[in-house]
Design a binder for these strands. Structure first.
Lengths: 245, 245
DNA sequence: CATTGACTCTAACGTTACGTTATACTTTAT
DNA sequence: ATAAAGTATAACGTAACGTTAGAGTCAATG
């Protein structure tokens, strides 16, 4: 097969094939006397492998190593690569959250209704405090309240922004499986956030999640970020709590 | 302030400042007669803005536009950028998912090949080979044996000895509870042994245990060490896998 | 006061994975 | 035979600096 045929077949450009030839990643088995590259079936298979690793985001150099050395430990390479991808992902998450905070903040010059947003954990100013005290004990609730009340306006604003950012993100991934990595990373943000304010045990966290669904006042507020978010959060929070015990 | 002072202050390199100068992103307000760049307070503020957008993953070109034109709609730029980050993230998620699948898949293959090794070992070195030949035909047995035989004699011998020793021990304690300390210590030997030859995850280990009961070929051979050993091992392996997660 | 060490400058190649011309030749179709 | 389509090599461009390399500058020390 000639370049264009191969290129069209696998959906890449002729230039790409030329490039792979240049860097020695994939040299056609045959060449006509006039210099045309002729690819064999075997070449095609190699190309498929190359494209596979390329889709995973491997650099061509690594792909070359992997392909050209059958003894290369692919499993290890995959594990390593996975880690680097996860790092990239968390960097991206940070960027997105920072953007969200910034957007929130600039919008926030107009003070939004604090109470709505804080209902999720502001037991100091809502009628559910007794329930919270019953459920998690006086100590946890008092601690949480003390912290919230000691915040300055700016601090409160910052919390709000972060709160919104987290919920926005969770709303975006609410159709993923609750035990997926994405979901668990998202819910971890929420857990960490809560624990920056008060002291939530994993059980308390799980219980809180359950309340999101049991108590329609919570459900309503939470689902404003996206329908079904409360249920998703309950499930993801339960998985998180069980997994991290 | 001179380059290095600024660079150290904000945590970037001198080269970066030079670069920003080159591309006209940030030119120092002043310059000494000898050509040294002297940055003003105002320059520093601009730099902070630049770094802020940079952290969000904006390309320098866009940052230049944003910075140099006060009329530029920052909010819109942020929203747009947010979208592109979300896309990148979902691409990353896809890559990660694909890697996970691949890893799972290859683990499965390792499991299978170990199974083959196991069979080969059993059938090539014990008196029941004839039975195996009768049941699955000469070809299958020979192929299986060939794989085992590619090991060096010493390797094979050591392997057999250890294998036998472990199974003998397990057979002796097979009437203990699968979650007892004795049983768990015994089964740990087996897990460690397997991981010296292949690569068994805890899940794979658990799955292998299940196979000991599901697949009568395994059951039969294992129970030659003692009736009920296969079932005992399956249970002990499951407990071990769950406990050590 | 000259030397030295720390600092600064410009210039230019290297990096990644091709896209994009530009120029010239080969093969295929009409 | 001639045009159209395909192929080849060569080389610049991209993003954001890192990394030498060679040369000049500034402040402190002997």
């Amino acid at each position: 097969m000639k370049v264009k045929e191969v290129a069209d077949l696998v959906g890449i450009s002729v230039r790409t094939l030329h490039h792979y030839d240049e860097i020695g990643l994939l040299t056609s088995e045959e060449t006509t006397e006039s210099g045309y590259r002729i690819y064999s079936e075997s070449d095609l298979e190699t190309l498929q492998q190359i494209l596979f690793f390329k889709e995973l985001g491997f650099p061509l150099k690594k792909i070359k190593e992997i392909i050209s050395s059958p003894s290369f430990d692919r499993a290890e390479a995959l594990e390593l690569h996975r880690k680097s991808l996860l790092e990239k992902r968390s960097k991206l998450d940070n960027m997105i959250r920072t953007i969200d905070k910034t957007i929130q903040h600039s919008k926030g010059e107009i003070e939004m209704s604090n109470k709505e947003k804080f209902e999720g954990f502001d037991f100091s100013s809502n009628p559910y405090e007794q329930e919270a005290r019953d459920r998690w004990g006086d100590k946890a609730v008092d601690e949480s309240n003390a912290k919230i009340n000691s915040l300055s306006r700016n601090e409160k604003k910052a919390w709000e922004d972060e709160f919104n950012s987290i919920y926005k993100e969770l709303a975006e991934i609410r159709h993923e499986a609750p035990d997926s990595e994405v979901a668990q990373e998202g819910i971890k943000e929420w857990y960490d956030f809560l624990n920056r304010m008060g002291n939530y045990s994993l059980d308390a966290f799980k219980g809180l999640g359950q309340m999101y669904v049991d108590d329609e006042r919570f459900t309503k507020n939470i689902d404003q970020f996206g329908k079904g978010l409360a249920v998703f959060m309950r499930d993801a929070m339960a998985v998180y709590a069980d997994k991290n015990k």
